[in-house]
């Protein structure tokens, strides 16, 4: 940077910007905001579909969603189950109670097609919108 601009920067740091600090608190808030960009309902549902390529129980799914950085369900795990049931009504996923007493979820053919469509679509938001539109139940 040019000398003159550097001097300007120094001067400003001593005057107007004196009280401005980028401390840990700020850092945390910025990181949360970045993380929060993925927590729109469509994105969450998409992540669920992606994770259900293999079959999972609600419990294991909750863990995997958290490891993806999605914190929406951290203190609201009931909502994960309502989302799963809604996706099941939309026939994107199907469920099955297994012999060990656990309920497993997995993608349906329709769900797989939707995922493929998303991955190959130039207009990704439009594909996502179908995941959250009402009706169809």
């Amino acid at each position: 940077m040019e000398n003159r601009l550097r001097k300007l920067k120094q001067a400003l740091n001593h005057t107007s910007f004196n009280t401005l600090t980028f401390d840990q608190e700020h850092r945390n808030q910025v990181m949360e905001k970045i993380a929060g960009q993925d927590t729109r309902p469509e994105q969450i549902r998409l992540s669920i579909l992606q994770l259900l390529v293999q079959e999972e129980t609600g419990y294991t799914l909750a863990g995997k969603i958290r490891s993806r950085g999605i914190k929406t369900f951290e203190n609201d795990q009931g909502a994960l189950y309502t989302t799963l049931h809604i996706l099941e009504q939309k026939r994107c996923i199907q469920s099955e109670w297994k012999e060990d007493g656990q309920k497993f979820y997995q993608l349906t053919r329709k769900g797989r097609k939707l995922l493929k469509k998303y991955e190959s679509s130039p207009d990704k938001p439009r594909v996502l919108r179908t995941l959250v539109e009402a009706g169809q139940i």
């Binding site: 951290e74 203190n75 609201d76 795990q77 009931g78 909502a79 189950y81 309502t82 049931h85 809604i86 009504q89 139940i137």
Partner: peptide, 18 residues
């Protein structure tokens, strides 16, 4: 149980679906 979130809200959402 705390991590499950709000029971009334969850219950209402389920009723909405079913």
């Amino acid at each position: 149980v705390r991590r499950m979130g709000s029971a009334p809200e969850t219950g209402r959402h389920f009723e909405d679906v079913y």
